[in-house]
Nucleic acid binder design. Sequence first.
DNA 1: CCCATGAATGTGACCGATAACAATCGAGGC
DNA 2: GCCTCGATTGTTATCGGTCACATTCATGGG
Lengths: 342, 342
Amino acid sequence: MSQQPAARAAVIKDVARLAGVSHQTVSRVLNDHPSVRDETRERVLLAVKQLNYRPNALARGLAGRRSRVIGVVSFDTILHGPAATLLGIERAARHAGYGISIVALERLDRSGVVDAVNRLAEQSVAGVVIIAPLLTAAAAAGSLPTGVPAVVVESDLAGDLPTVSVDQVAGARLAVEHLLGLGHQTVWHLSGPKDWLEARDRVDGWRAALEAAGRRVPPVLAGDWSPKSGYEAGRELAERGDVTAVFCANDQQALGMLRALHERGVRVPEDVSIVGFDDIPEAAYLSPPLTTVRQDFDEVGRRCLAALLELLGVDRPPGVPRHPRVPPSLVVRASSGPPPAS
Amino acid sequence: MSQQPAARAAVIKDVARLAGVSHQTVSRVLNDHPSVRDETRERVLLAVKQLNYRPNALARGLAGRRSRVIGVVSFDTILHGPAATLLGIERAARHAGYGISIVALERLDRSGVVDAVNRLAEQSVAGVVIIAPLLTAAAAAGSLPTGVPAVVVESDLAGDLPTVSVDQVAGARLAVEHLLGLGHQTVWHLSGPKDWLEARDRVDGWRAALEAAGRRVPPVLAGDWSPKSGYEAGRELAERGDVTAVFCANDQQALGMLRALHERGVRVPEDVSIVGFDDIPEAAYLSPPLTTVRQDFDEVGRRCLAALLELLGVDRPPGVPRHPRVPPSLVVRASSGPPPAS
DNA sequence: CCCATGAATGTGACCGATAACAATCGAGGC
DNA sequence: GCCTCGATTGTTATCGGTCACATTCATGGG
């Protein structure tokens, strides 16, 4: 009848008692402090194993003023990019021995970001990563009041905070150069929403590539990332006879555009070539399979963590650039080809 | 010269001093304990505001043995379903005043799940939600060693733990009945991976609906959620002339199948009707727009949280069922129609 | 008029770890 | 042989809250 109801998890004192040392010595072993005799260390580790002891992260954080958790402010994780970025960060954090706390934002305005960071700060996170694909969020990140170490993803203009982003401009250039290389006279562009930085950068890269080649720059078609906006843009383009190549700012828009063109009897790539951006899992199985630009989100996650750890002074690999840009790569499939002979 | 370097954040004692009360009274105000005089309460709240005081969640959790964070064990959050579920849980948690800590699993085996829960337990989470769409994960969840309150999502066989899931069987039935209602003699099925519970349930629902209608049950085609497997199954089906309707276990597979059929000149829905599952954002813009079954992931998230809060004894709404099943709904689009006249 | 009662508030222990400092011990220098 | 020094280990304070209990004070019943 004297059975404990749920044998309370062992704490550091239990380990100390079992190993016959002071709790402080146990703490030293756990944090591999140098001056512990080998024999003592082993005795402690044995006790740890026997009791299945796991240090309490809360107590650790409170006493040591550093927690092994990093906060992530995320946005619209239904979209492929943000979801993949979040996963990349989680993966990198886990490998570095950190946990992840997330706060998702419904709207990406200034007070929302600040508020989210505050909520994370309450939890004494070691630092935060802000996935801030919008201009407003980047601005907010630039003016964080608290002294929380922060890294901003997908934005290179967050005040003096370190940032990590995919080189969107280079990605757009890859797409455009690919199409020009196939013989197209110019390339149209269906952009993402104006307030997204990635959308803006892709427009810039597209325009720069066209200008560098001395080509005419058509007007930008404005989309909102959704397949719907791609569909609508596709119907417009189908009306005109002079479009031979379109660079869509993401794969979902490209998908909608494919549908519109197909509906109107415009053949891809024979009549019009389409290039997307993201390389979502579906891209290879659209009709036709989509040529697109792939982003390495795992690499983004790794670099975020590297930047954050440097900020925390944990690691100090001297060569880490403050605003690294991860290079994207072009994946050529069947949706792009030479222009019609005409 | 006496300026503080970064004016350390205010703690409860600072508030107490400023308000001229004891720290315990401040604590009472913060946790709205009844017996505090109004005048005192206001004085404290004023001090809180003046100092911009925010209670330290670590200390709170340590002392009070309850943290306002719940852990989520997630898997494959690149897929639409898990990503949406995660977001739903985060949203519900945020509204209930809880934060979210996540651990993503690479593989969904027993030790992985147990390990993830342990990592969360170290952080003293109030409870965990396990997104366990695989049989192995459900089994692991059923044998969690620690005394951590847990709710399991997308699995109804996790020992005696409360679970929340979408009624996959009903969803599959909706799809099949829709197709039979259009006049098809029978419906083929491209399943998800065998070890996923959702895949298994959808197979069950499909078969049950066919049997209930007294129809022939064709062999199950085995997929793996990927567009690729849908594409391959589509090529096989195109070979046969006798297939008029296919229920795909998810939209990505349906997408691949659409591509294969299109490639072979099989028209959808004139020759073959296709129904998917999930209603991913792309579904409405495929060629043709996809008829599919929609799941309400926000509702799943809400119910998860309700179940967890009940487990925590925080709330006790008596009517909460232990294994609620969220009903899915059919979204009819252009990929399904009457069978060919033949 | 005294005492029981309950509301309002304060005091000190405690949660489980780390940090700072003290104590102990054996070895090498004079 | 005594003292200093570094390696080990222990003791106590501390992190920032909550909990359990003590205390104070005004009120109402006998």
